[in-house]
Every structure is written in structure tokens, then in C-alpha cells.
């Protein structure tokens, strides 16, 4: 099977400081890849560079579109980049307030991406929004409530609904469960795992939580100081870490 995303020798420097350095990986359709590492290790930088939200200093990111054509993201125009982000990708931010439109209702938040794609039938928009609220376990009677009246976990689920409603092929997630309490985290992870399986999504997820990686990801990349120190099957990495830093990460989880 051919890859969906090819990252080759990707580097991003903030002036003299290194964001990420020489990162290469492939992502296949339907695969969920986790990027783990401590705070400041370049995970989010890498994610943003891959999602074309930051411009890399060197290296290339290639993406295979629905029609099978390969796109070099560095050479993409602003218009094409936005079209991809609108039609084929989704981005879930750590803080749902960054990803949601807080001054409009939950239903409008879910329907916004559909309207951006040109859907102009109110009843259909509404039915789709209601359906997706149900899918992320939000009571559909709250469709007209403002997201500010939702709890943190509900807001995050709303953001997931808003992102997935257009059935993207590739979703980027930046610590979607950080800042939530453990039981809410578990529900959201459970939800994500189910949706990813049902929709056959490919996803790149950044997390500092190894348990999240174990639960969701088939493959994991471990980063330290902007570089990839280890990459492989998640179970392999967590059960038999080779690199001293990974060993440290894994052991620190076990001892707490």
C-alpha cells in the first residue's frame, strides 16, 4: 500500500535554535502515528511543520491527494494549502477554545466546515450537526447552546466533531487530551479510537503521555531535543526500549 504522507529530512530552526532536525517518516492510510517526547522536544513544531502551518527550514513533506496525485507541501500556494486544510485535513488543538468558534452555537461550530465546502441546505446541515453531536456523545438537544457553556471535555469532543464532520483523510492532533482529568481523558481516547477505526482515518498525534500512545497508536516516534531518537511499533518501543532516553521515559511512567 502506498503512503499518504512522506516526510523527508525535515528541519525547522527558530533562528539559531533547533525546532526539529532531520525528521523522516511515512504515514499510511488508516494509520495512527504518535509523536512522544518531553516538553520542548520539538513535537508540536514537527506537527505544525508537517501540517504546513509553519514553513520548514529544510526538507520536504509530500502528501497524496484523494485523486492519487502527490503534492509537495512546501511549494503549495496559500489557496491550495487552505483547500487541503478544508477538504482533506483536520486539526485538533490542545485547547478546544483555539479550535472552536466560541461566539456561535455548537451546531454552527459543527456545520461551519460543511458550509465552507459549499453546503447550503439548512435542514441537512442541522441534521448532520445533530448526528455528529450524538457520535461524540454530546446531548443533541444542546445543539443551540454556546460552547462556552460546555465543560472542558465536552468542548474537546465538540472540536473533534467539528473536525471530523467533513470526513477528512488525515487529522493532526496536538495533545487533544492534555489538561483534562483522567476519566474524561479515557472517554475521549475511547471515542477517538472508535472514530479513527470507523472512518479509516490517518492521524498524527502529539502527546507526552505514553499511555495514550499505547492505547491508540500502531507506531510511535520518540523525540528528544528536536531529533528522532527511536521509532517503531508502539508495543516494541514501550516494552523493549533501545535508546537510553526512551528507556528513561518508559521507566519514569512505570515508577509513578
Amino acid at each position: 500500500m502506498s503512503a499518504l504522507l512522506q516526510v523527508r529530512d525535515l528541519s525547522l530552526h527558530y533562528g539559531p535554535r533547533v525546532g526539529c532536525e532531520d525528521v523522516s517518516f511515512d504515514l499510511h492510510p488508516g494509520e495512527l502515528l504518535c509523536i512522544v517526547g518531553e516538553s520542548g522536544s520539538g513535537k508540536s513544531t514537527l506537527l505544525n511543520a508537517v501540517a504546513a502551518q509553519l514553513t520548514p527550514t529544510a526538507g520536504s513533506v509530500r502528501y497524496r491527494q484523494r485523486d492519487g496525485e502527490w503534492l509537495e507541501l512546501g511549494a503549495l500556494s496559500e489557496a491550495d494549502r487552505r483547500r487541503l486544510a478544508r477538504e482533506e485535513w483536520g486539526f485538533v488543538t490542545q485547547n478546544p477554545r483555539d479550535g472552536l468558534r466560541l461566539n456561535v452555537s455548537a451546531g454552527a461550530n459543527v456545520a461551519e466546515r460543511l458550509m465552507a465546502l459549499g453546503m447550503r441546505h439548512y435542514s441537512q446541515l442541522r441534521a448532520t450537526a445533530r448526528h455528529w453531536l450524538e457520535r461524540v456523545e454530546i446531548d443533541p438537544t444542546r445543539i443551540d447552546d454556546a460552547p462556552t457553556s460546555f465543560s472542558g471535555g465536552m468542548q474537546q469532543r465538540l472540536q473533534i466533531a467539528r473536525t471530523l464532520v467533513t470526513q477528512p483523510r488525515l487529522v493532526f492532533m496536538d495533545e487533544p487530551t492534555a489538561g483534562l482529568d483522567v476519566s474524561v481523558q479515557a472517554r475521549i481516547l475511547d471515542l477517538l479510537r472508535r472514530l479513527v477505526n470507523e472512518l479509516g482515518l490517518a492521524a498524527v498525534m502529539v502527546t507526552h503521555d505514553l499511555a495514550v500512545a499505547r492505547l491508540l497508536a500502531a507506531r510511535t516516534i520518540v523525540m528528544q531535543g528536536g531529533r528522532v531518537v527511536e521509532t517503531g511499533l508502539t508495543d516494541q518501543i514501550l516494552d523493549d526500549p533501545q535508546h537510553p532516553y526512551t528507556q528513561l521515559l518508559v521507566s519514569s511512567v512505570l515508577t509513578t
Binding site: M115, G118, I143, D144
Partner: peptide, 13 residues
């Protein structure tokens, strides 16, 4: 698409 968000809110409310 954003402009329709406002019209959507009108109808919803």
C-alpha cells in the same frame, strides 16, 4: 462559508 455561519445562527435562534 463563514458568512453562512451567521445566517445559520439566525435560523437556529
Amino acid at each position: 462559508g463563514l458568512m453562512h455561519v451567521k445566517l445559520y445562527e439566525d435560523i437556529a435562534q
